[in-house]
Design a protein around this nucleic acid. Sequence first.
DNA 1: ACTGGCACTCGCTCGATGGGAGTGCCAGGA
DNA 2: TCCTGGCACTCCCATCGAGCGAGTGCCAGT
Lengths: 340, 340
Amino acid sequence: MSLDDRKLEVLRAIVEDYVETQEPVGSKALVERHHLGVSPATVRNDMAVLEEEGYIRQPHTSAGRVPTDAGYRLFVDRLSKVKPLTPAERRAIERFLINAVDLDDVVHRTVRLLAQLTRQVAVVQYPSLARSAVRHLELVPISTTRLMLVMIADTGRVEQRLVELPGPASVEDVLDLRRRVNEKLAGQKMADTPALVQGLVDDCSPANRGTMACLAAVLLETLVERSEERLALAGTANLTRGGVLDFQGTLRPVLEALEEEVILLKLIGDLEPSKTRVRIGDENEIDNLRSASVVSTGYGPGVTIVGGLGVLGPTRMDYPGTIATVRAVARYVGDLLAQN
Amino acid sequence: MSLDDRKLEVLRAIVEDYVETQEPVGSKALVERHHLGVSPATVRNDMAVLEEEGYIRQPHTSAGRVPTDAGYRLFVDRLSKVKPLTPAERRAIERFLINAVDLDDVVHRTVRLLAQLTRQVAVVQYPSLARSAVRHLELVPISTTRLMLVMIADTGRVEQRLVELPGPASVEDVLDLRRRVNEKLAGQKMADTPALVQGLVDDCSPANRGTMACLAAVLLETLVERSEERLALAGTANLTRGGVLDFQGTLRPVLEALEEEVILLKLIGDLEPSKTRVRIGDENEIDNLRSASVVSTGYGPGVTIVGGLGVLGPTRMDYPGTIATVRAVARYVGDLLAQN
DNA sequence: ACTGGCACTCGCTCGATGGGAGTGCCAGGA
DNA sequence: TCCTGGCACTCCCATCGAGCGAGTGCCAGT
């Protein structure tokens, strides 16, 4: 038996009420709060079907119903419209982001904003190096045998690494290296650089070849292998809202997961083009987050995507509102990046 | 009546037992676990005195005793010896830190290490700009009217800021600015720079003066006003150890406090020279942390101090062990910094 | 000054009780 | 065929009281 419209309506009502009250919702309360036009008994029959299909369940016999992960999924996919943001929210976003002075600032402001608006844990990935291009490379002598390599990406990210040279290098040597490196790499997509770096060493004057080899090694490591994706986190205190009920009693596993950058990157770093992704409870591959939901999306200047952002909260969350906020923030951040 | 030796011994025993078991400790259990050489009744009398003096209290009539903040304070000041680290721990520290490739890496490794060793929340401040000297300033043209200002401090910290110029600047202009800025500021203590920056504008050729003024403004902001102290945090999951008892039932206020960088800086940024500071419960000025203790110290190459680090946990913590670990880690980090 | 003894306090656990919310099912009606 | 009102049933939860036990304070004795 397929689900007719009223059953879906009942499911929606259950989800909405449960999200709001955090208490199992019964048939009588349902018909009172929503004008379904039928009696509690009818609703009960519908509920029985919904339960059989796995969309809701009872915490114990003769308690109200609670949505299952599958129930939320159906709700998100078919029953909810993304809730447009209020003008006040839009203004808040703009006001908050407009004053950012550099990339670090943008990311920090964004993550706090997102946490505040959604009242959940927010994660923002820095623009991915892998998706950036090299804007400029700078070599700063620290001592005769040490250079500081500073790489500036077109996304505004700046990475620095210390380079230990095999032998002393003169100021002229450094300038020469600097010119060569920039000629070859500036403007290149990060992904294309590994092939080019080898050429750098080959073309180099024999005198500087050793130094260049050293530099090349660090370059490779910085640009690709250890293309360390950074991220920012905020709003962990929001996990404590909603008492002990969410996250089955203990925040422990969730906090643990949040400490692992690798895990967070997996969560928000999927980056399907301009699609908002919602992972509900068990859909998360991470065991520690089986009782959590994640709403994430990509951001970037224009249509290209350079990084991900998202929020994490209990499966019992306001999906329409959260999705709308995440999308809106992502778009504003993208616009901001486009201006640079 | 002053506290004689045995009463102090009793207090120590109470603190140690309570820290270990997390349960109020009674007179009988005390004499059994520690060979105090007296009867429970005697211990009870001592306890009555200790309670009167405010060092311990009873959660309810006829339960065991629990140390008060004042009790922990006395314990830390007079009753505990700093516990030397085991060789295994020393090795762990070395092994963990030795592979760090740059400052970011050092800080991240340190904070994780500290969290892991103490099993508490760890905070590490990046080397403070205010306590650093300028090593080098680099100007990278982004477009004709935009520069990226990169400042490298002698502590290894790198800060960058975007500078919007009033009008287009040629490559020669930028080189000129770069030379002037470095001549004036390189090697200077950060604290001395504000006075020097004004001179920069005055000395500048009229043609570049507008540009230099702009640059100077950003410099000032970066170097002093917005001398944004960064920090790293780890181990929040450790807050959930020890059940609901610590932090009087809710992590909320603690998590909130941990999100405020300003608060964290106040906690670990006091930086008395080479002194380990312990704040116990109510001694914290931050209301949200009245049920927590903080152990912090400064670190730096040699005797100078460039930043702070520390851990935060329940007042019921292993003070001798924690203090020892915090000190040891600080020293290792200092040594590491000295090598650069 | 310390000890053993003793009465007392009080939090905690356990089981029984009653109320209430919610359910499933069924027979009757549109 | 689908909806509705009624009814018996289930089971959670809050309340209560009893019994237990750890721990205390006090006191008299050594």
